[in-house]
């Protein structure tokens, strides 16, 4: 109906300008707070606490980083979180890939019923307390198993992996392999896994971020301070303002402790967030 008139293209240009404008504002809304955190972490404690810091460090100082680096608990937590994240992600990948592959096969006898069993757990769960009592009965309270086992598989991720197998592993490849006498185990390990690079990368990212960032299960199941993951230690310092064993200073005074927490806050935020942000950015870039 409408013909391509100069007026039409003019409105397209206006439309473009409007969209670029909106996206630019959005870009600023996302980036400025992040820059503010960075700038604060590089400013002196005084400037930061007076709220003087905008987008550029005021009274440039690395004191805050120096303090975090000498704070042993943070590094213990860092190490714990790295172990938990690696252990958990390995378990997640094993469970997810094997289940997803079996369920992706049309000729898997019983597949539909099993799929139903998986999907139902997305819709309904026993709840917090039955889960807690299960950990207690399994005698894994206060161990890292309680952080890793209850989140063994995300059904959502499993479905994504299943769809990936269904769409990228050619049926002909499986038939040809079968003709050659290749059984399902061999086919899975020798053909499917080597072809699954992209999905493994995505799953690793999702699972690793979840493990690294979660604090809830540790709050429920871990009481021993030596086993605390980083997020619990962060919560104690950042939100509850609890600074316990300062290596450099025997701070008995509550006010001194709070000031320390205040000084460390921004550099802690940066140090704790960098691994996953870098990881996420890299995976996004590859894909």
């Amino acid at each position: 109906m409408k013909t391509k008139t100069p007026k039409g293209t003019k409105s397209d240009i206006l439309f473009d300008i409007a969209i670029y404008g909106i996206l630019f504002v959005l870009f600023l809304i996302i980036v400025l707070p992040l820059l503010n955190v960075m700038a604060n972490s590089l400013s002196s404690a005084n400037a930061s606490m007076m709220g003087k810091v905008g987008l550029w460090p005021v009274d440039f100082s690395l004191e805050s980083y120096r303090m975090v680096f000498s704070y042993k608990q943070v590094w213990a937590g860092y190490l714990n979180s790295m172990i938990i994240t690696s252990l958990g992600t390995c378990l997640n990948l094993t469970l997810t890939l094997t289940a997803a592959y079996s369920l992706s096969r049309k000729d898997f006898f019983g597949g539909t019923v099993l799929m139903g069993l998986f999907v139902f757990t997305m819709l309904f769960s026993g709840g917090l307390i039955p889960n807690y009592l299960l950990m207690r009965d399994l005698k894994i309270l206060n161990t890292w198993w309680a952080l890793v086992l209850p989140v063994g598989i995300s059904v959502y991720s499993m479905i994504v992996a299943k769809t990936f197998f269904q769409t990228t592993i050619p049926l002909e490849l499986h038939e040809a392999a079968q003709m050659e006498g290749c059984d399902d185990f061999n086919f899975f390990f020798r053909f499917v896994l080597p072809l699954s690079g992209p999905i493994i990368a995505v799953l690793t990212l999702w699972y690793a971020v979840d493990h690294w960032n979660s604090y809830f299960n540790a709050l429920l199941y871990i009481k021993d301070e030596k086993l605390f993951p980083l997020q619990i230690i962060l919560r104690n310092i950042l939100i509850s303002n609890k600074v316990d064993d300062l290596a450099s200073l025997a701070a008995e005074d509550v006010e001194v402790r709070q000031a320390m927490a205040q000084v460390m806050k921004y550099s802690l935020i940066v140090i704790a967030s960098v691994p996953m942000i870098v990881n996420g950015g890299r995976t996004a870039f590859i894909n």
Partner: peptide, 21 residues
């Protein structure tokens, strides 16, 4: 063999998802 592959996930599901229900 497909059942064997899915077995670990199935055990997980029964113990950590269905048992709490």
């Amino acid at each position: 063999q497909l059942w064997v592959l899915i077995l670990p996930a199935l055990i997980y599901l029964v113990v950590f998802r269905y048992f709490p229900m």
